[in-house]
Design a binder for these strands. Structure first.
Length: 223
DNA sequence: TGCCAGGCCGGGT
DNA sequence: ACCCGGCATGGC
């Protein structure tokens, strides 16, 4: 696991993630970007900033329909408006609206709580924990699966938790490392060959396969 | 033009 | 425990 990180960092450099001004903005972005291009999400964030809605209280006070219209450009806008509402309600109810209090809770406890909030699944919960709270959890996304599958390290059926465990067992428990690693995977992610595609020379890890990890048919796979 | 983007929910087996 | 349809806009 560490070797992949070293290659990506050497070839693409530090990413300075998450691209947001505040912790709350990280959380909003994490919910907005679910299966949605970051480009569209950025516009929605700008709209929310202009409307001065990038903090818990104002976001609770605006109507859900008005909120939906503001984030229309990011897709799934009605669903996402509901999700944002669900999070700020959770934050107020459990932590009097304070992110400091929320992130003061033990990692696994908070993770379970976040997963119980409507609209927050594993990846979103972990993005919030890591990028807004600096808790040491590894964020797994589509690109992560794609990268590992391509290198024969996971199967289709492996679950989110299994893949997260793979990273967390193989790496030192350092939020900064998890942060940079996931950022590099997303940054280069579009170029990872999809599972069924032939291996291509644009793959960010092309030419890098530790001897012990080379799939039997790797060489013939080259195009 | 059709497919994809930094997933998740709810209902069904 | 999985499997699937639905959610929705903008870019290429």
């Amino acid at each position: 696991m560490r070797e992949y990180f070293d290659v990506l960092l050497r070839t693409h450099g530090h990413q300075n993630w998450w691209p947001a001004r505040t912790r709350f903005e990280v959380i909003v972005g994490a919910i907005l970007t679910q299966n949605t291009s970051w480009r569209n999400v950025e516009r929605a964030i700008v709209a929310l900033r202009r409307a001065k809605l990038l903090s818990p209280r104002p976001l609770e006070e605006v109507s859900e329909s008005a909120l939906a219209e503001l984030i229309r450009c990011s897709g799934y806008y009605r669903q996402t408006a509901r999700k944002l509402k669900a999070f700020v309600a959770f934050l107020r109810t459990n932590y009097t609206g304070s992110l400091d209090k929320m992130f003061g809770v033990a990692t696994n406890t908070l993770r379970e709580q976040l997963l119980a909030v409507h609209g927050i699944g594993p990846e979103t919960a972990d993005s919030i924990l890591l990028y807004a709270g600096e808790h040491p959890v590894f964020v797994v996304d589509t690109y992560t699966r794609r990268m590992l599958q391509r290198h024969g390290l996971v199967e289709e059926r492996d679950t989110y938790e299994e893949i997260r465990g793979l990273f967390e067992r193989s790496l030192p428990t350092e939020p900064d490392l998890f942060n940079e690693y996931h950022a590099l995977i997303v940054h280069t992610g579009k170029h990872f060959c999809r599972p069924k595609e032939p291996r291509c020379s644009q793959c960010p890890l092309h030419g890098f396969l530790p001897a012990t990890l080379v799939p039997v048919s790797a060489t013939e796979d080259e195009r």
